[in-house]
């Protein structure tokens, strides 16, 4: 009985530490991105121009989904790096969706994001599961071409840094 349990324990350790889901886990780890394996819940939100955007319309493309708020100081520090990433990878089929979870009006969010060119959506303009930001903001998700979340970056990151660029390139190549 003891040996059976021991063997089971060893098996479980090997299983949980070696399983990868498409992307090399070492690349995720070195970029500080948590590995996930879950279908991204769909949503329908409005952007700053009043156009309705749903997640499922980007099925077949890699999506970078980012949540932030105007009252979040670390979010503001992170945003210029997202802008740089957007400019570098936008023409390489990376979709960037930046979602403000502010409960305030569209004008406040528009004023806040004037210097950025990536698309900005308003969380409270439609139906989106708050599970996306329950652990805090800023938080970013990388969604593969099958609509599956493969990684989550919690807290502010340098999206223009080498580690995260390597990760994005790997996902776009995959």
């Amino acid at each position: 009985m003891k040996y059976t349990t021991l063997i089971l324990a060893v098996f479980l350790v090997i299983f949980f530490t070696s399983t990868t889901y498409g992307i090399d886990k070492r690349i995720l780890d070195s970029a500080g991105v948590q590995e996930m394996k879950q279908v991204a819940p769909d949503f329908n939100l409005y952007n700053l121009d009043g156009r309705k955007v749903s997640l499922k319309e980007y099925h077949g493309k890699v999506v970078f989904l980012h949540f932030w708020a105007t009252w979040c100081k670390p979010c503001k520090e992170e945003m210029p790096t997202i802008e740089k990433m957007y400019r570098e990878f936008n023409d390489k089929k990376l979709i960037v969706l930046s979602v403000s979870i502010d409960k305030g009006g569209v004008d406040m969010v528009r004023a806040y994001t004037l210097e950025f060119t990536f698309p900005v959506l308003l969380a409270y303009s439609g139906d989106i599961n708050d599970s996306y930001w329950i652990w805090g903001i800023p938080v970013s998700y990388i969604i593969d071409r099958n609509g599956r979340i493969i990684g989550r970056a919690m807290g502010p990151k340098n999206w223009d840094g080498d580690a995260l660029k390597t990760l994005i390139k790997e996902i776009l190549r995959d």
């Binding site: 708020a69 979040c72 979010c75 805090g136 903001i137 800023p138």
Partner: peptide
Amino acid sequence: YRVYPGVISPS
């Protein structure tokens, strides 16, 4: 249980 806040900011 996290009583406060509803949404966490790193700072």
